[in-house]
Design a protein around this nucleic acid. Structure first.
Lengths: 118, 118
DNA sequence: TCCTTTTATCGCATCTATACGACAAAAGAT
DNA sequence: ATCTTTTGTCGTATAGATGCGATAAAAGGA
């Protein structure tokens, strides 16, 4: 999408869509889940749990880093990944609010507005 | 992603990633929000509120339909869109569980597992 | 210094997503 | 029967996402 068009959309919607995009791939769902369920913080272990090449997993990890979902510490030669606490709650909060909005509104089952003429 | 690879991932992760993908575009955040906040159920009004061509909006509406997020009734020549109640709660429920999982696990700040040798 | 280990990045190929304008479809109005 | 209105779909073009193997980088060990 072009920058011009993006600017005409609400910043909040763009921000939320970034959360969506970050979670728009099975591997990027599986990685945070793995980090929460197991102690597999080392990159190599994450790779072992996914049917993807190391380079590909590293790319997904980068996406999750950019989205602020995970943090990492470098302990050469390995990297330790973990879930970002601060952003976790922010994610849950913002998405929760979105769901509240969506859940609370528009209870009509038929069309309430019509365009009869111009 | 190829079918072979998809099959090696958990079905739950694939299902959740579809929710993410459906919400991975600002327009597909804005449309459900509009449907919840206003009574703009007629397609033409949705188009008026977005900086996108009618055909493009129709495509996004199709995506949201396929994801099960919105429902619609046809009242020729117009279409009335609304949020899908059943799927709304499902979405909130599944995503909520994911966030719970993510939020509850992995409190360590340093690496807990290391691969020293093979 | 030269290997080993581990991870990030690059180059490339392919597939998907997104956008637009133009057109098709459907039903009421004239 | 024809026109109008509204929406869905198509063809096409471009940008982004995704994948892999190969390579670079960084630090410790031999």
């Amino acid at each position: 999408m072009s920058k011009v068009r993006m600017e005409k959309l609400k910043p909040m919607d763009t921000r939320l869509s970034r959360w969506g995009k970050a979670l728009a791939h099975p591997a990027r769902i599986a990685i945070p889940r793995t980090l929460s369920q197991r102690d597999a913080c080392v990159c190599a272990e994450i790779v072992d749990h996914l049917p993807l090449a190391q380079g590909t997993v590293s790319q997904h990890l980068k996406d999750l880093k950019n989205a602020g979902i995970i943090t990492w510490t470098v302990e050469e030669p390995s990297s330790c990944y973990s879930l970002d606490k601060k952003t976790r709650s922010q994610l849950a909060g913002e998405m929760g609010r979105l769901f509240e909005e969506i859940t609370s509104g528009c209870n009509s089952t038929t069309c309430s507005t019509k365009v009869k003429s111009k």
